[in-house]
Amino acid sequence: MKSDSKIYRFFFGQRGERHLPFGAILLILVPFLIGGLYFQNRKYNALSANPEHTSTVISDIGYIGTSGPIIYYNFTVNGVTYKGGMHAKGFAVGDSIGVVYQKDNPENNMTVFKYYDGPSYGSVTIFVLAAIVLALYRWRKINRKYNESCPELDGTGRCSIYRIDKEYIFVTVYNVTASLPIKFLPIDCGNGEFENTLMEIFHASLHGKYVELKNAELIKAMKQRSWRQLYQHSKGVLLKHDSRTLEILPTRKATDGKGLDWDYSRALSFELGGASWKDIINSTRKLLEHHETD
């Protein structure tokens, strides 16, 4: 499943998201919910199949967080003392209370009014309703056309992208100087991966700490043998933005054959207030796939 598909993003979020994905939350909570419900029903069914009644008094009242008071009680069966407790209001230490316990296992017990109320599904109902609401909200959000509007971009960011045979190379640009970090993506990556990597590089160019590198160090970090080899076997674009406009400036082979020049005739400009981010990504990739004629 591709990472920019709707189903993938519904459960696991977009690549690069830092919050806990929806699917991860479900994978954590659902087993606990099912296990707790199974244990509760099993305990109640075993008790109701072989019940015994007795009476006792409340021995203590405690509090855990803001969940309300918990009453505690003790009772004795065949000379053995057993304990129990439940959330309840309006009681005081010393009040009489009825208890139902499992005849062959008195450790399984509860108060009379809890027993006759039957298994509680309130927490399950609340969880299911909350999960449905969150799922509908998330699906509605994801089901919108992919990245139709542009994200807010502050300041002035720059990113160089090179397309070689099997991958894209994203390079951070501080003003006019290329540096780290450098990111790599396969040519067949999804638009979501492409976008998130681009945004990471933009963020680095705005907020990262600039470390000056020599050309030999930079080309090595890009995993290329030489700048000449990179220029001969790659397509390149420079993306730069301010808070209102994003420009894409492609490269072309230099007339002397020794490097790359800017190809202003194919440059593109987008107004961030009304442009489609999907169009920006597709246009960038299309420029990188452009084949020049001799």
Score class of each variant (00 low, 15 high):
residue 286 K to T: 03
residue 173 V to F: 09
residue 20 L to H: 03
residue 260 L to F: 03
residue 178 A to E: 15
residue 26 L to H: 02
residue 215 N to H: 12
residue 178 A to R: 15
residue 171 V to K: 13
residue 137 Y to E: 05
residue 41 N to L: 13
residue 171 V to T: 09
residue 238 L to C: 08
residue 44 Y to K: 05
residue 280 I to W: 00
residue 225 R to A: 12
residue 70 I to K: 12
residue 21 P to K: 07
residue 76 T to N: 10
residue 110 M to P: 02
residue 176 V to A: 14
residue 165 D to M: 11
residue 256 D to H: 05
residue 37 L to G: 03
residue 28 I to N: 02
residue 142 I to R: 02
residue 242 D to L: 04
residue 87 H to R: 14
residue 100 V to M: 08
residue 261 D to G: 09
residue 289 E to G: 11
residue 229 Q to I: 02
residue 103 K to Y: 12
residue 128 V to K: 11
residue 171 V to Q: 10
residue 21 P to M: 07
residue 293 T to H: 14
residue 290 H to A: 11
residue 114 K to P: 10
residue 141 K to V: 12
residue 206 L to T: 01
residue 150 C to T: 11
residue 256 D to R: 03
residue 76 T to E: 10
residue 3 S to L: 14
residue 70 I to A: 13
residue 45 N to R: 12
residue 41 N to G: 01
residue 260 L to A: 07
residue 233 H to Q: 14
residue 97 I to M: 10
residue 128 V to N: 10
residue 263 D to Q: 04
residue 288 L to K: 01
residue 90 G to I: 11
residue 41 N to R: 12
residue 32 F to H: 07
residue 138 R to K: 13
residue 23 G to F: 02
residue 22 F to L: 06
residue 271 E to S: 12
residue 273 G to V: 08
residue 246 L to H: 04
residue 236 G to C: 15
residue 44 Y to L: 05
residue 104 D to P: 04
residue 73 Y to M: 01
residue 191 N to H: 08
residue 187 I to W: 05
residue 118 G to V: 05
residue 122 G to A: 11
residue 123 S to H: 12
residue 167 E to P: 04
residue 228 R to Y: 05
residue 279 D to P: 00
residue 242 D to V: 01
residue 46 A to N: 15
residue 38 Y to K: 09
residue 255 T to V: 07
residue 264 Y to T: 15
residue 26 L to K: 00
residue 148 E to Q: 13
residue 156 T to F: 14
residue 77 V to F: 11
residue 103 K to V: 12
residue 202 F to A: 00
residue 240 K to W: 13
residue 233 H to L: 10
residue 84 G to M: 05
residue 257 G to L: 04
residue 4 D to F: 01
residue 211 V to L: 14
residue 12 F to M: 08
residue 234 S to Q: 02
residue 90 G to A: 08
residue 84 G to P: 07
residue 19 H to N: 13
residue 14 Q to W: 06
residue 82 Y to K: 07
residue 54 T to E: 01
residue 94 G to K: 03
residue 132 I to V: 15
residue 46 A to C: 11
residue 220 K to C: 04
residue 268 L to Y: 03
residue 277 W to G: 02
residue 76 T to W: 00
residue 93 V to S: 02
residue 192 G to M: 01
residue 265 S to I: 00
residue 98 G to I: 09
residue 1 M to Y: 01
residue 220 K to A: 09
residue 176 V to T: 15
residue 121 Y to E: 04
residue 48 S to Y: 07
residue 38 Y to F: 14
residue 273 G to C: 07
residue 276 S to N: 03
residue 199 M to W: 07
residue 30 V to N: 07
residue 229 Q to N: 10
residue 64 I to V: 15
residue 241 H to A: 01
residue 270 F to A: 02
residue 64 I to G: 06
residue 98 G to T: 09
residue 121 Y to L: 09
residue 119 P to N: 08
residue 99 V to I: 15
residue 51 P to D: 00
residue 287 L to F: 04
residue 183 K to E: 10
residue 84 G to W: 03
residue 97 I to D: 05
